[in-house]
Design a binder for these strands. Structure first.
Lengths: 236, 236
DNA sequence: GTCTATAGCCGGATAGAC
DNA sequence: GTCTATCCGGCTATAGAC
């Protein structure tokens, strides 16, 4: 049996038909000349399947969600799902790979590439912002590693490690330039990522603090963790 | 289907009979005069059921573990499990309640109760140590909240909040005494707990760093996060 | 206290009609 | 591209023998 926990702002029931997050984003889902006007088709239903799976996996966990539930959320029969994914495992793997590709690519296009302190500040803010924008994908990426088949697990680990190399490299550069106090680069990078990612467990839009404030406070703590402060002399 | 991820130091197969963690701890499980010498009985089997459930829930997740698997791990039939728990949900709830009662009680008996900086240092070290000693219970407590029934979820949340009040109170005292730089007490406490708890995702006994070193490095970073340093003048 | 057997349901995935 | 029907197996929990 599955109970719905309060997560985020909504309380939709899964019974009956409802619009997917794609439509709720406010933009039409008409995806070019091939889209047909008569309800679902391949170009639209595929993304809606992945969106529904992401929502449900994040809320209830991969093992607790059935293909029938995903199909019901999309508004199709369970059998039709298999036109969009080979099986349930592949659906999970594709969600995680896409998420990690996204986050790695997004950082590359934002990396200021200069002073280590600036980069740590930028990385902290980027990580917070990116994660608050994709709470479901983040939740899955961190909680469902154990639900991956061994092969898929290995492939995801490669991506995860390549993202973790980002803060490691920043901290190493900062330590070598004696701008930061880092006793162990990998340990500190792990601690940093855990702290930043933890924001997804409590932050809610419309709550006491807004995103800009949260971002700034976390960035300050990130710098403090390694004995650095923005626009100030180092303190050791 | 369930795949076994590498977690911790062991690689036991679940097929066939094996000794439970209770026996592996090195101490006999003969629990006083009521224990009978002929294999499992109530005094021994109950704890072994909980230990097996804890192991399996932590590795594969509550939803992915069947009562049959738990029973097999203990070495009894599935039906016999119901002499030790009302149902699977109650088994999960009891594990989480016991864990949280433990951690709260353990801190109370260790709290140095003095200077906020000493207390933050002590809390950080305590949290790391306690969590590294109970990786399975910790994993379940943080990952399986969504598997609790609404009633049980509410009861666990009460306990969880009472533990989170510990660092909140420390940081508040430190900020009021102007020994720490804390822009927002709850935000900082959440960030601190997330950072510290994250140690369980990567630390392994026998790895590159030992527990004492890890404990010390995390405690340093915890103090740095709020602009404090042990045995040094404050830096602002 | 544990066993075997089973009720009743739900799971993933497939086949073939339309 | 979606539907309905179905295979086959696993699930929780219970019943009753020993």
């Amino acid at each position: 049996m599955i109970w719905t926990l309060k997560r985020g702002t909504e309380g939709n029931k899964t019974a009956g038909w409802r619009w997917s997050p794609l439509e709720l984003n406010g933009c039409s889902v008409y995806l070019g000349p091939m889209a047909r006007p008569s309800g679902s088709d391949g170009d639209v239903t595929g993304p809606r399947v992945r969106a529904a799976a992401e929502r449900l996996f994040a809320r209830h966990g991969y093992a607790a969600v059935s293909m029938r539930q995903i199909a019901a959320e999309v508004g199709i029969g369970a059998g039709a799902l298999y036109h969009y994914t080979r099986d349930k495992q592949t659906l999970l793997f594709d969600l995680m790979r896409t998420h990690l590709d996204d986050v790695i690519g997004a950082w590359d296009s934002v990396d200021p590439q200069g002073d280590p302190i600036d980069r740590l500040d930028a990385f902290s803010r980027f990580h917070i912002r990116h994660h608050l924008d994709r709470p479901d994908a983040v939740f899955i990426a961190y909680m469902e590693l154990r639900s991956l088949s061994p092969d898929n697990f290995a492939r995801i680990e490669v991506l995860r490690r390549s993202y973790e190399a980002v803060p490691q490299q920043i901290l190493r550069a900062g330590a070598e330039a004696q701008l930061m106090h880092v006793s162990d680069v990998k340990l500190a990078a792990n601690a940093l990522i855990a702290m930043l990612t933890g924001v997804t467990t409590w932050y809610r839009d419309g709550g006491r603090l807004d995103r800009a404030t949260v971002e700034a406070r976390y960035a300050d703590m990130a710098l403090g963790m390694v004995g650095a402060q923005k626009s100030l002399q180092k303190t050791f």
